[in-house]
Amino acid sequence: MNRLVTVAEMTLRELLRRRGVLLLLLLMPLTFYLIRRDAYLGQSVRSLLLGVGWAVSTAALFATTAARELEPRLRLAGYRPHHLYLGRMLGLWMVGLVISVPFFLLPMVDGADLRYGGLAAALLCSVGVAAPFGMLIGALLPRELEGTLLLLTVVTVQMLIDPAGSGAKLTPFWSTREIATWAVDHTDQGYLARGVLHGLAVTALLALGVAAVANVRLRRRRHLRHLPVG
């Protein structure tokens, strides 16, 4: 447990020291919100949630890429793969929660008539999905540029795809959109239930994907035999 917490803490420390990154993390959802502010509020809030998801995914991608050289030696120092990826995910979730707070308050200050419980759930879903999503891309694509371009593609698809279409459910942040619709348009409970279920399932699947890649990359190699000191 101590190893897990230490990795989470160091992830948090690293991200909090990247002031430029933090600023951009805050700026991105804010821009998304403001750019749609004159139009329909629901679209503005959905864009805000997508912005939070994109920002946290990008942070996760960069954190994962930056740790690529460090992780093998931490493995040798006594960490198991799950300490490393779960600890990092925990740290990223904490960062996501911290940056979500102002975006929970923003529509409130703006006087929006929302179900604020729904907004909180949508933010949680967005952050929950984004951390393993960015980590998985970072684990699969070792170069930041390729990872960023893939993230950009996914988020663009997410923005443009018809949410009622069956393909939309395959996008990672569909859950956020469903919960946001429940929060903004005061629709029936089905939106909330579908969204929460989708969010939990996608988070679990992405986390399993991260675990699988980490376990392969940081596995004990068969050619190396460890003996106790005689």
């Binding site: 160091m10 690293e14 991200l15 930056a66 740790a67 040798l76 120092a77 190396l224 035999r225």
Partner: peptide, 22 residues
């Protein structure tokens, strides 16, 4: 080929292996 190691292993890479912001 194979490698047998007795006891704890330490490794220092040529470069990298540290965290920039720590």
């Amino acid at each position: 080929g194979d490698v047998t190691v007795s006891g704890q292993l330490g490794y220092c890479p040529q470069s990298g292996g540290t965290a920039d912001f720590l």
